[in-house]
Design a protein around this nucleic acid. Structure first.
Length: 297
DNA sequence: AGGGCAACCTGGGGGC
DNA sequence: TGCCCCCAGGTTGCCC
């Protein structure tokens, strides 16, 4: 079986979702859905008729593309304007199986399986049930891009626009901690707890800094760092997504994310040697280097 | 209205 | 060995 996912345990942020999106696109575009198997579960909670919406609407449709914004991806079809939105939550995975064996029983934590002509199947697996599959209408956003209506409130991700200054300007209008703002998908999408900490360390800014206290240049520096850190992770994941990996420290946990602060509390900062500290910010774990990231208050 | 935070969920890990 | 408690985090919704 060909498995397209990130390492088990890796919370999907933008790079992981993009890796999965590309993997699905490779095998599912131009294929027709022949069957949908699913369990009645909360994974379909956003559909008015639950799973029945998918089992009734999807068979017979031909997938035309797999798109993404931030951490959200969606399948588009030749036959209907509606799209299938896939959000992986924090433990979701998609497995692409090469052979359809005809077996229709779902495995543990597998909540839906889409069967394509030509023998491939797409399995949606999610132990913690934070993810969801939603058949959605579309809208056209301010940039003229057709997107699912259900993600209309989500901001552009850092890869969609070369110029990050408009996002930096929005940062200057809130007094919330800059890390909290980085995690706000309505400000900028795709960044989760891991890459937020990595970006702040790369930009040498303390996460508790009120966003409005940053200069436009500083806010832009953090956003550029986020884009750069995620681009590196994407390159690593994209080149080896169907292999089993081990990171540079021999840890199978976070593979090529090559983290500099996240999860490294008690260890030496790779920049300055100072001990990485772990605190809580906005109810989430927060890792930083007290030497590289001096608080300014 | 902006901002803070609990709740959702369950596997896994630490402590006893 | 086993059990209990707590923690992880993306997103929503409620309360202040």
């Amino acid at each position: 079986m060909l498995t397209i996912n990130t390492k088990d345990g890796a919370v999907p942020e933008l790079p992981e979702v993009e890796t999965i999106r590309a993997g699905i696109a490779d095998h599912a575009v131009d294929k027709t859905i022949t069957d949908v198997v699913g369990a009645d579960s909360r994974l379909f909670r956003n559909n008015p008729r639950g799973l029945a919406t998918l089992t009734d609407e999807l068979p017979g449709l031909t997938i035309s593309a797999v798109q993404r914004r931030g951490k959200v991806m969606w399948l588009t079809f030749n036959d209907i304007p509606d799209v299938l939105v896939v959000h992986l939550g924090m433990s979701g995975q998609v497995h692409v199986a090469q052979e359809d064996t005809g077996e229709r029983a779902l495995k543990k934590h597998e909540h839906a399986r889409i069967i394509l002509d030509g023998g491939y199947t797409l399995s949606f697996i999610d132990p913690r049930m934070f993810g969801h599959l939603t058949l959605s209408q579309t809208v056209v956003d301010e940039g003229g891009r057709t997107i699912p209506a259900v993600i209309g409130h989500i901001a552009l991700d850092p890869f969609e626009k070369a110029d990050l200054s408009p996002i930096a300007v929005r940062f200057s209008r809130t007094r919330r901690a800059v890390k909290t703002v980085l995690l706000d998908q309505e400000m900028v999408s795709g960044i989760g707890n891991i890459y937020a900490d990595e970006a702040l360390h790369a930009a040498k800014i303390h996460g508790s800094t009120p966003a409005k206290d940053l200069t436009a240049g500083e806010a832009e520096k953090i956003l550029k760092a986020a884009r750069e850190v995620m681009a590196r992770a994407l390159k690593a994941g994209g080149t080896s997504f169907d292999q089993y990996y081990v990171d540079t420290e021999g840890n199978p946990g976070y593979f090529e994310r090559a983290l500099t602060v996240y999860g490294r509390h008690g260890k030496a900062c790779r920049e300055c040697g100072q001990t990485i500290v772990r605190t809580t910010l906005s109810g989430r774990s927060h890792f930083f280097c007290p030497q590289c990231q001096r608080p300014r208050f």
